[in-house]
Amino acid sequence: MSKDRKTSRRKRNTIILFILLIPIFVGDIFIILQGKLPFLEMGIPLVLTFLLFITLFFFIKRKDGQKIEGDERNERIEGRAFTYSWCLSLYVVIILMLNDTLELFEISTSQCLFYILSVMLVTNLVFRATLNRKGDIEN
């Protein structure tokens, strides 16, 4: 794939990601303006938006920065990190479902989402860094 095509695809993806963030921002503004929710409940969507922004920032920075498109080791690492983090997030989902069934702790839906997304994001970064230190991820 030519460099120009890659650049235009990257720009298009960035625009799409920003467009997808608009409804979240509008939602956040409504939540703040209404001010009906308790502080903790109101903070969670804002923290989630912040996490999304951080992810997006690193995503764009990485694409425009030192990462070389098509580096096969990078691609393998990214794929593996996503798989591992997804599996761990699924594990967290199961734990939360068990918690709900056994009625151990009272957790709201937004708190659930916060836990799942946080685990997904943090484990992805951790796995990526760990796998990056290893030579071959197939080993």
């Binding site: 990462k67 070389i68 498109e69 098509g70 580096d71 096969e72 080791r73 990056n132 030579g135």
Partner: peptide, 10 residues
């Protein structure tokens, strides 16, 4: 060859 230096190192 269009890869990162780390790839060559490993």
């Amino acid at each position: 060859v269009g890869v990162r230096r780390e790839t060559i190192v490993f």
